Amino acid sequence: MCVRPVGGAVRHRRRRVRSERGSGSLLTLFACVVVATAVAMATLWAAISTERHNLAAAADLTALSAAQSLASGAPDPCVTARRVATTHQVALADCRVTADTISIRVTKQLNLAALASPTLSAQARAGPA
């Protein structure tokens, strides 16, 4: 576009063109942040899920061992339950003995870095078939 001032030379006015330069870098950075967040969440979910399964297995084995101890005539099957729970690196939170069954609850504190420290628990019951 030319502008001709009164009495003189022609001056050209430059149009300002908006540049999209650098927008690809920002989009790439945003995509990397989204992917990193998704990977972190998937890792946390996998860690918690794995520990829940391990805790359920430890609860089952603890209850079965205590029930076998009860069936063999041990005076306190909860002592056996506590020993087995400790072997599986879980805490025995509750142990109840009824006539011929054992009900137990075990817990485990997870340490998920600086994000959280949830306490998971699982219950199991065992007795004669």
Rank of each mutant, 00 (worst) to 15 (best):
C2V: 13
V3I: 08
P5Y: 00
G8E: 15
A9Y: 08
V10F: 03
R14H: 09
R15S: 10
R15V: 15
R15Y: 05
R16H: 07
R18E: 09
S19V: 09
E20I: 09
E20Y: 05
R21M: 11
R21E: 15
L26V: 12
L27R: 04
L29Q: 02
F30Q: 15
A31L: 13
C32Y: 04
V33D: 03
V35A: 15
A40Y: 14
W45F: 14
E51W: 00
H53W: 05
N54Q: 13
A58H: 03
L61W: 06
T62V: 05
T62E: 06
A63C: 05
L64N: 08
L64D: 07
S65W: 07
Q68K: 09
S69E: 06
A71Y: 04
S72G: 04
A74R: 10
D76I: 03
P77E: 01
P77Y: 00
P77V: 01
C78H: 02
T80M: 07
A81Y: 02
A85L: 04
T86A: 15
T86P: 01
A93H: 10
D94A: 13
V97Q: 13
T98H: 05
A99S: 12
A99W: 03
D100G: 11
D100Y: 01
I102G: 05
S103K: 10
I104D: 02
L110I: 07
L110S: 09
L112I: 14
A114D: 13
A114P: 07
L115F: 14
S117G: 14
S117A: 12
T119K: 13
L120Q: 04
Q123L: 05
Q123A: 10
A124M: 06
A124D: 04
G127P: 03
P128F: 01
